[in-house]
Design a protein around this nucleic acid. Sequence first.
DNA 1: CTATATTTGCCCACAAGGTGTTAAATGGTG
DNA 2: CACCATTTAACACCTTGTGGGCAAATATAG
Lengths: 151, 151
Amino acid sequence: MGFQGVYYNSVDAKGRASIPARFREVLRETYGDETLVVTQDRSGIAAYPVSQWEKFLEKFAQLPHDQFREDLHLTTVTPAAHVTFDKQGRIQLPQALREYCQLDTDGVRDVVVVGGDGKIQIWNKTKYLETQAEAERRMADQRQKRFELGL
Amino acid sequence: MGFQGVYYNSVDAKGRASIPARFREVLRETYGDETLVVTQDRSGIAAYPVSQWEKFLEKFAQLPHDQFREDLHLTTVTPAAHVTFDKQGRIQLPQALREYCQLDTDGVRDVVVVGGDGKIQIWNKTKYLETQAEAERRMADQRQKRFELGL
DNA sequence: CTATATTTGCCCACAAGGTGTTAAATGGTG
DNA sequence: CACCATTTAACACCTTGTGGGCAAATATAG
């Protein structure tokens, strides 16, 4: 099983984020990795097992040199950083990424760590709740579709 | 017969909720499951027998990558957690879900556990009563429809 | 190039949260 | 009213997250 679940955590004054023990376990056991690659992702941070990230890089290298590749390079490849865990299971988030998802700024410390298969996402909690609320509002009109899926 | 009935229960200080013995029985005998998958559902928590949840996931995987799928992923797939019963028939509700349905916060402990076919719903009791009252108000205008159904 | 500040990593200790068990309370049923 | 099933309370134990101190590394200023 991949990364699964939503966890409310916080970053400390030094910009360290705790990654749920469960996720660390999956990282080791499913991916055999000890390291994550963190980068930007739709106003949040995405963290990938290194092995997965490397697979992505190979595909990326094959891309034709067009606008898409350039944009992807700028937004995703360039800001990426390899991070390792300290003894307490925390990773150090690069300052650039913290700024990018408006952490840090005036005492914002609450983050939401979300597992989505193959990757871990780290959100500014406020942003997460807003995004979620919007999605929910849109979903309200889709009861029939939900029902058809067995929910 | 599926899950049926309304039960007023409570969550303990650590966020565990008792699931009615009747429901546990149905879970075992009708679905052959020992585990539930809990997730968000319209400001409450929905709990599905794992087997049902897996069927849903298969259908979900087939969906085209559009807005609806993304919203469903964010609100339903992502926050899901597998939970098992302890000796007393309780399940541990993840913190994120408790917060989502405003449990826990300032000593709110009362929940309503409702059976709806194929799933179990867990509501904040206050919210449940409000929702119920609204539904009843809307129903007042539907006497004809009710009559046609033989009520 | 040296001195001073800032960041980063490492370690410890504490607090909060989760798990399991036992015992008491509650509520339905005969 | 008494019995039984079931839920709730209380407790101890373990895991996990969080904050702080300190030293090494890096950056900044003199």
